[in-house]
Design a protein around this nucleic acid. Structure first.
Lengths: 208, 208
DNA sequence: CCATTAAATGAACAAATGTTCATTTAATAA
DNA sequence: TTATTAAATGAACATTTGTTCATTTAATGG
């Protein structure tokens, strides 16, 4: 056989990215061979190279695509430009929700930083930093205005990010709690952790 | 050359474990070859097999040793059997302090779970669970007694663990804040996150 | 001091790795 | 309809992989 009926470049490239997300998340980048990746897609190894230059290229593509989507989705989140309290709630809610839906991509983007070669690392790191910047800015503004009771915006940002990102390591859609319920637990915890009166935040929302 | 002057089994085994901790943390288990490991120790590949049966055996040994040490150290932590508030403070303090000192081991024990073969996984998972159990029990007791304002002890335990464990991903001894300062930030955040009045906890300590 | 054991070496192994290439066939544009 | 391009195949490649083994030398117990 050669070219398959109905095959187009974009379809296969998408299938390769999807398979890579599953396999990299499951076994880790280094432990996934190009043969295993091809098997999972249902093509031969050599066909991979019609769509990606190298294995590294597959990883970089998956990570950059994910991070750009995260940033774009956050840009579109309602409430992100409100006062620090509401902005933080919006951030926590967005982050948990989005990350529960993309557990694998999140896991990869965090775990496989070390597998990136220098050039790719710089690109990915810049995207990651700009996301971290979002929550840090909210925290710093709230701290300056005396709304948040935190010691250090930077450390707090890292701690809160780790906390909410951690949901990807144990959440299972079939578990005891729904994604919705878990979202509420996390949002409440984030708000409490910075000393914001969360009930008030909800009341304001209802009143407003 | 053959057997080296001054070489004993325990010394070399220790050196191998130490090198493995550095390399596995840096590059990941799958990306570290037995040759790279041997190089780092300063011996030949074949010599590794005088001390460990397989590469997998090196990983399992490192992880089990680390987790057993964590549990043993926690057993010895003062305050761990006090009321939930003090116990949680003790836990947070212990965890951050210990993990800042063993960044690599923590990172490995978390990241490389998937690299463990079934038998080893079961052993390591049991150790991990029993550590998770410690904080969950503290939270559940505090929740029942109405001391902690949390929605769910299990989710809260996972969230707090992720938060404090996350310190290993960015902490650098040469950074802006000292380990001591970071410890304080994290402890305060943990206490606030569960709705405990942390100042009170400190006052009680001073008063008691 | 000598026999035994433990710890090292270096060469070798089959299997698996990422990547390339000539070839074939389907989709697409002229 | 035909020429060109894009997407697949399968064989081959040089390396690297984890592991084994015969051999050598140092530490150790009687």
């Amino acid at each position: 056989m050669a070219r398959r009926v109905g095959s187009t470049g974009e379809k296969t490239a998408r299938a390769i990215r999807d398979a890579a997300i599953v396999l990299f998340a499951e076994r880790g980048y280094a432990a996934v061979s190009m043969r295993a990746l091809a098997d999972h897609v249902g093509i031969q190894v050599s066909a991979l190279y019609n769509h990606f230059e190298t294995k590294q290229d597959v990883l970089a593509t998956v990570m950059v695509e994910h991070l750009e989507e995260v940033l774009a989705s956050w840009e579109a989140m309602p409430g992100r430009n409100d006062d620090p309290e509401r902005a933080l709630e919006a951030f926590a809610r967005f982050h948990v929700r989005y990350h529960v839906d993309r557990q694998r991509e999140v896991f990869i983007s965090f775990m496989e930083l070390r597998s990136l070669e220098d050039d790719n690392f710089r690109v990915v790191e810049a995207l990651r930093k700009s996301y971290e910047h979002e929550i840090r800015d909210i925290l710093e503004t709230g701290r300056k205005r005396g709304i948040f009771d935190i010691k250090d915006a930077h450390v707090t940002a890292m701690a809160l990010l780790a906390m909410v990102t951690g949901v990807t390591t144990w959440f299972k859609p079939t578990g005891r709690l729904s994604a919705q319920e878990i979202e509420e637990v996390y949002v409440a915890m984030v708000m409490q952790a910075v000393g914001a009166d969360y009930q008030t935040a909800i009341d304001q929302k209802k009143a407003g």
